[in-house]
Amino acid sequence: MKPEDRVEGRHPMEEFLRMDRMPHIWCSGCGIGIVVTSFIEALQKSGLDPNKVCVCSGIGCTGRVAGYVKLDSFHTTHGRPVPFATGLKLANPELKVVVFSGDGDIVGIGGNHFIHAARRNMDIVVICVNNFNYAMTGGQVAATTPIGANLSTAPYGNFEYPFNLPYLAEACGATYVARWTCLHIRRVTKSIQEALQKRGFSFIEVITPCVTLYARRNRLGDGLNLLRYYYENSEIRHGADTRTLDIGYQGKIIVGKFVDIEKPTFLDCMNNHLRKVLGDKYQPWGVKS
């Protein structure tokens, strides 16, 4: 009997993983894999048909998620998974489309797409793994780097104001906004499940350690140290005013579910508006008759 034929030799999530692509490229101590585990568990619990769930990633460490999940999965260009997801979703509204990418991808180079998809209330889930730096390219300063952190393109420490992502998402119109550290495994899973089961633009930020670059350059210990540090320095404050969620260097991280509202999606608005204006001439799109 080969190891993969034994029940105990199989990965419990292998139905959702491309086992023929393992081992993955992530460093030991990296938090991305934990978020993938949470995502798959959330997907299993959501009751959604996995054949109707798509994952779109951009470029970067988290951008590799699309390559490992066994779903219709799209590894797109840098910063563009959100508009790519927009096209997928609008062309086939039956699909549940998830953008799974990093902070550099989603709010750095892809920031414009992110704010517009949130503004339109595009019915997609955006999972943003925030490791405070551009890791795939070797640890450069990012739009999320806390002031004072040292990175290869901020060799004397970062002096730029970073984004407060939940505030940005809420201000742009997101209907679901949460932030966790990746060690809040059950809470991340629950948030992703809620987002998957919700209609509207959902945004979940997950703080993860980048052990090889961010932690090493700033002498913050190994992955496990930093995982614990983020977890222990977080404070759960559901419904907190998103304006108060800035993250300082090795400072307190406010986590929780901040926004969970109902609002018609882009397609709802399009169908409702055009039906009202055009009457029976209008051919509704993506509405089950």
């Binding site: 508009p83 609008l90 414009n112």
Partner: peptide
């Protein structure tokens, strides 16, 4: 869309759908 970059990204997504 918000720009032409997004436009072509959306086309590719729509075509895959």
């Amino acid at each position: 869309m918000e720009d032409e970059i997004a436009s072509v990204a959306a086309l590719i997504g729509a075509s895959w759908a």
